[in-house]
Simulated assay, not measured.
Amino acid sequence: MENWDDIRVFLAVARAESLSGAAPALKMDPATLSRRIARLEDRLGAALFLKSPQGYALTERGLRLQAHAARAEAALALVAETGEAERGLTGQIRIGAPDGCANFVLPQVCAAIQARNPGLELQILALPRVVNLSKREADMAITVSRPETGRLMVQKVTDYRLHLAQRRDAPVPESLAALGARAMVGYIPDMIFDRELDYLGDLGATAVPLASNSVSVQLQMLRHAGIGIVHDFALPFAPELTRVLTDQLSLTRAFWLVRHAADRRSERLNRFAAMLLAGLRAEVARLEAGRLTEGITRRDG
C-alpha cells in the first residue's frame, strides 16, 4: 500500500469528484491536491482519474484502488477504536438530515450526546436533497424514505406526524374544500427531492402561492400569513401557530437512519447510532406532545 496520506488524498478526490470539492475537508488548496494526485499516479505508473472541466472521474485502475483503499480506511478506523468502549466517544461525526429534522430535532439530541462525550465533534449537514453517503458527504444520514438501493444499513427511527396549521388569530376554515380561499404555504413543487415530502396531493392542490424548499422558511411564512402542512414536532417552536382540521387531514411519515454498510463493524459508530436513535425517538415524542421547555431525555440507548 502506498503512503497512507496520499491514499487519503486520493479517496477524498474520488468521493468529491473534483479537487475543489475535496479541498475543504483536507484543508489543502486544489493546486496542492493536483500535485499530490499527479505524484501518486507517477509512482503507480497509471492514470487514476479522467480529468475534465466537469471534474475528476475514476479510471478503471482508479476504481480498483478506491475499493482497496476504502477497505484499508475501514480497518484503520477499527484499530483506532480499540479501547474506546471504556471511554467516551471522540473524533468527528457528521450527520446529514433534511432541514426539518436538522433544525427542530437534531440540535437538542446532538447537544445531549456531546455533553456526555466531550471529545466528540458533531456536525449537522442540512441539505434540501438526499445526502450522498457513497461520496462520504456524511458518516450517516436521516432520510424520510427508506433507500431501496446501495450497500447501506437502514434502521427506522420513528414515525412523525404532520397537520395543517395557521396563526391562532386567523379564522379557521370550515373544511378542506374551503382552503382554496386561503394562501397556502408549502414546498416549491419542482424542488421536492423526496416523494414523501409531496403533501399537495393530499390537499388536491398542484401549487401554492407561498413556497420554499426549506421547512424552516415555510414555518416562518406561516408565522405571518397563510395555512400549510407543518410537522407537529416543529409547532412548539412557533407558539403563535395552531393545528386546524385535524379530523380531516392527518399525515404520518417516518425518519430512517442510513449508514454505510462498510461501517457495520465500527463499534464507535454503532455506539453513536444507538445514542442517536434513542435521542431522536425521545425528542420527537416530547416535541409532538408540545413540551418545548423540558430537558431532553438523556439515554445512551
Rank of each mutant, 00 (worst) to 15 (best):
Y187H: 09
P189I: 04
E174G: 15
C110A: 13
V109R: 02
Q114V: 15
E148P: 04
A111F: 07
P118R: 03
A115L: 12
P107W: 02
F193I: 05
L176I: 08
C110T: 14
M153F: 13
A178T: 12
L176H: 01
I142E: 01
M153P: 09
M140E: 05
S134A: 15
D159I: 09
H163F: 09
V172R: 07
Q123E: 15
Q108G: 12
I124N: 07
N132I: 04
E148R: 10
M140Q: 07
D190T: 13
L152Y: 06
L125D: 11
P147Y: 04
Q166H: 05
V144K: 00
M191P: 08
Q108Y: 14
L176P: 00
I188Y: 08
P118I: 00
R129M: 14
M140Y: 04
V185M: 03
G180L: 13
V131A: 04
I192H: 03
L164I: 04
N117K: 06
L122W: 07
L127M: 14
D169M: 02
L164Y: 02
M184H: 13
V105F: 06
M191W: 09
L162D: 05
P173A: 05
R167M: 06
V185S: 00
A177C: 07
A126P: 02
D139K: 03
R146D: 11
M184E: 13
G119S: 11
V144C: 02
Q123A: 14
C110D: 08
V157D: 00
F104Q: 00
G186R: 00
S145W: 03
L127V: 14
P173C: 06
R146Y: 06
P171D: 10
I188H: 10
A170D: 13
L120I: 05
R116W: 10
R168W: 02
V109Q: 04
T143I: 02
A181D: 15
Q166E: 05
E137N: 04
L125E: 11
Q114W: 12
I124S: 06
H163S: 09
Q155L: 12
A181V: 09
A126H: 01
A115S: 13
L179T: 08
A126T: 01
R168D: 03
S175Y: 10
I124Y: 08
R195S: 14
G119N: 10
V144I: 08
A181T: 11
P118S: 02
V154Y: 03
Y187D: 05
L127D: 10
D190P: 06
M184F: 12
L127K: 12
L125F: 11
V109I: 13
R146G: 07
A138L: 01
S175R: 10
N132R: 09
G186Y: 00
C110G: 08
S175P: 13
T158V: 11
G180P: 13
P128V: 09
G150D: 00
V105Q: 05
A141P: 01
C110P: 05
L133P: 05
L176S: 01
Q123Y: 15
F104T: 01
L164D: 02
